[in-house]
Design a binder for these strands. Sequence first.
DNA 1: CGTTTTTGACCGGCGC
DNA 2: GCGCCGGTCAAAAACG
Length: 204
Amino acid sequence: MNSFTASFPYNSSSSTSQTAVSSHLSLDATNDDYSYDHATYSNDDNYEQLEDDDHDQNLRLIRKNPNRRSGEQALLDDHVSPTNSGLGNDLNSASGSGTIHVKKGDKKIRKPKCAFQTRSQVDILDDGYRWRKYGQKAVKNSKFPRSYYRCTYQGCNVKKQVQRLSKDEGVVLTTYEGTHSHPIEKPNDNFEHILTQMQIYSSC
DNA sequence: CGTTTTTGACCGGCGC
DNA sequence: GCGCCGGTCAAAAACG
């Protein structure tokens, strides 16, 4: 992991320049909680459609019309984002709202999610992809907000959430949702390698 | 001036 | 039906 920690100082071309970070991955963090995603994903033929960029663009076009939000929202949920609250368990939601709700007989498929914790001074880890922030929400029982990011590569629908644990504010929890449909944009040898390894181990 | 962030509004799901 | 909650939208502001 030494090489990993050494990899961070060179990033900074993106938005906020970040100082050197010493980080430790804790890969043991959340595997159990997300295993269900892998199961559902494995037998899913629709998964490719979820990544379809045409579809996404259509949605965006429709959304441009301010008169009709609600209807389109439903449409979007129908195709793209089925219940995506499955990550609550580890995100300190004591309310229990993070439970996985799958409607009975519902074939909606979740994208695979993969979470890991990083001990880091900064929230935004440079993983080589370009992300655009699209939301931030206060987290219950935490003084730190949760930030929502989407991959900016056209047609790539991958999202991630970043939040700092209130329990241990030195730890950043990053949750990836979906799979990148394109090569990494800014190769970061060590981090990319680690991510690849994680995906092998966790099959997400 | 194009891209990204901020931030309040909005939405669907869920529990009561 | 209502209120809460997590997630998303989108206009405006900020940034480079």
